[in-house]
């Protein structure tokens, strides 16, 4: 499976995750967000950028519990909770936000 923006082809797996992490850019994120029916705001980007940074540091997508805790530490307790993150990404912050951020599916995500 794949999609195309401005002549560039992005390969995805059967669940819609980018196959090549290095393909990711803001255009790809916007396309993936549309597919997920998520309208991207600054709050969404904050989480997306956090996830990309986390992946860059640790080479994994964090489990929800770990993501929540780490976001709370970095962006404050009002954002470090499941409610806030599920409001932004209703189908699960780990699954949905990771997909838009171009990361693989989180390990240990049930």
């Amino acid at each position: 499976m794949s999609f195309e923006i401005n002549g560039k082809t992005y390969e995805t797996d059967e669940e819609g995750y980018l196959v090549n992490l290095s393909d990711w850019n803001e255009d790809a994120a916007k396309h993936l967000a549309v597919e997920e029916k998520v309208e991207l705001t600054d709050q969404h980007w904050e989480v997306i950028n956090f996830l990309r940074e986390y992946y860059n540091d640790y080479q994994i997508a964090p489990a929800v519990r770990v993501l929540t805790k780490a976001i709370g530490k970095k962006l404050g307790p009002e954002k470090g909770n499941s409610k806030y993150l599920y409001e932004l990404f209703p189908y699960g912050p780990a699954k949905q936000a990771c997909k838009i951020a171009g990361l693989p599916k989180p390990t240990g995500c049930i």
């Binding site: 540091d57 640790y58 080479q59 994994i60 964090p62 489990a63 770990v66 805790k69 780490a70």
Partner: peptide, 14 residues
Amino acid sequence: VKNFSPTYRALEGY
């Protein structure tokens, strides 16, 4: 192959 060694540093967060 993937360099997964940085992931050991994520264990603390888990």
